[in-house]
Design a protein around this nucleic acid. Sequence first.
DNA 1: CCTCCACCGGAAAGCCGGGTCA
DNA 2: TGACCCGGCTTTCCGGTGGAGG
Length: 419
Amino acid sequence: MSMDSNIFERMMRKNRIFKNRDVLRHSYTPENLPHRRKQIETLASFLLPALNGETPSNILVYGKTGTGKTATVKYVGKQLEEAGRNLKVNCYVHYLNCEIIDTQYRVLATLAKALGRNVPMTGWPTDQVYEEVKNAIDEKDQTIIIVLDEIDKLVRKGDEVLYNLSRINSELKNARVSIIGISNDLKFKNFLDPRVISSLSEEEIVFPPYNAEQLQDILIQRAELAFYEGVLDEDVIPYCAALAAQEHGDARKALDLLRVSGEIAEMENSDKITREHVKAAVRKIEADHVIEAVRTLPTQTKLVLYSIILLHENGKRKSTTGEVYAVYRSLCKRLSLDILTQRRVSDLLSELDMLGIINSIIISKGRYGRTREIQLDVPAKPIKDVILDDYRLEALKKMEKSFRSIITLEVFDYTNQKF
DNA sequence: CCTCCACCGGAAAGCCGGGTCA
DNA sequence: TGACCCGGCTTTCCGGTGGAGG
């Protein structure tokens, strides 16, 4: 047996790439944030009053994804709490991500929990939870900073919470509250009550995208911690940075690219990461993203998507809502599933569009009406496989042979009805 | 220039499964 | 236990509309 096939030898070589891959993950908050000095200092100066027992202004933080908003706010928040401890001032930061905690009720309930109150995650009237939060905060002389990350996600569901929270100070005797809202959507203010806007955005901080050079600095800093020396080909970092810079200077994307490149190199038992690995990473990230999105779709939506794929495979590269619905309905009947209304299917199609799985535009065919023109935007094969993984749709596998006739029949019937 | 198709998409309301409370 | 509440999904109803064909 040659040395090369010794299992330990191979494993040793496998570990030659990553020293610590976690520093490339989203959850990692670095010790220092390159090119964000100005934002850190501004934010800190806004929060400074908290240490004197005064109320800091409410702050809105803007910037696209991967511009360091969350990392910066968390970093400054940590520093503030630390300073509070040293100076014996009650000063606490509560971080909420509104993408996960995405309703009025849940925001309040989570806050109440963080403040040590026992509130069920569902059940109570919202007002009552608000009272509970208010009382918990006012229990002692303290400053509470509430960070609402992805605040735009919350606004879509009504601004009552924001209205209440932004005026909570007038109802407090002992404590002070200030809110930091983080958003990557500059337009989200349009959905807000003007009063809420003015009170929420007493101060604003904008995070500009990173340029390619700055992204390189970030990557170099992380790569040092993540990889063993000499693993990276010299053009890998500039390449990752350039790719991410093309997409609105997204540092998260850049780090993903670097990590996945490393993982691919590791899998190939290569002891170097090359430009080719980065190219492969681009493809892998894209594909994984779509597959994962499809897998987590509700069954009905999968069936709608499947109908589009069937039409596509049978020579209809572009189909309309009506055609898709006809095929969908016939599949439902055969699977004896409930049939959704066309109105609902129309919404499901918009969702698929937003996920980037299909491409749909609304066109007018004049006399022949207005409809969506739907195209499949991703390779059909892997998507089909994922859909068939759904146990409620397993029966589709046995129907392969009748698909052709479903298509011709349904679409024919459907167009026939119209004339 | 008007019509009228085949849908779009907003609003409202219903249903359901999760939960609490007294 | 029954009276509530919440959120997600769905149905019902309906007014709106770009542009090919008359």
